[in-house]
Design a protein around this nucleic acid. Structure first.
Lengths: 106, 106
DNA sequence: ACGTTACGTAACGTCAAGGTTACATATCTG
DNA sequence: CAGATATGTAACCTTGACGTTACGTAACGT
């Protein structure tokens, strides 16, 4: 599953936020949500397969750690097009008058 | 639909990339993909409802424009946690030896 | 060794996302 | 006005995402 898709689910984003604070085992993570533990287990699998988290075994527990490098890729994409925003803002006054002049482009 | 969900679909991300280059009408956008025009029309609706694009009418055409402010919100979220990455990188040498001691991830 | 704890997986149900074809509507053009 | 063009919507189908309950398995504690 693609990183964007992994981030589409709010529960998974919450898990990421939790793990940003500190590493946690699966049970702790599940305990923070109302949905069932198997459901969280699945979410963790999705996050693992997307490379967004990794798990290490510690006795019978699995401790999850945030792996932010896929996040960095997403940040790259998003920043490219929200940076475009700044650019647009800079050009805003120009664009407005240009459009008024042209009628419409395309 | 939430912005993250709107971004989860690769076709919609492509549309955003196209519109970052320049405004386009619906037909042009649809022409760039292999899926049917109604499918693209739906994607455009999703993007509109997420506030990621806006449309203005120009005769019988609808010209779509990228509206990057929701992207900026996403950028805010993502950057918050990929910024955490930098922090981790700073701590990398420490972390590596720590993990080597503890065992292994995943 | 045995029950308990921590986790994952299997099997299954439901619902919504995304695709298609067919159709409705509005605007151009001759 | 009549036909062509541009676009959205309706109806429908299929598939996959997400949830639940039931079960399997490995490590702990007594």
């Amino acid at each position: 599953m693609d990183t964007f898709t992994a981030l589409a689910d709010p529960t998974r984003r919450s898990i990421i936020e939790m793990l940003a604070a500190e590493d946690r085992n699966a049970g702790d993570i599940a305990g923070a949500f109302t949905v069932s533990r198997p459901a969280i287990s699945r979410h963790l699998r999705v996050l693992r397969e997307a490379g967004l988290v990794s798990a290490r075994e510690h006795g019978q527990q699995r401790i999850y750690t945030l792996e932010p490098s896929p996040l960095a890729e997403v940040a790259g994409w998003v920043n490219r097009y929200s940076a475009f925003w700044e650019e647009r803002l800079d050009r805003l006054s120009v664009a407005v008058s240009a459009r008024a002049r042209e009628g419409n482009e395309q």
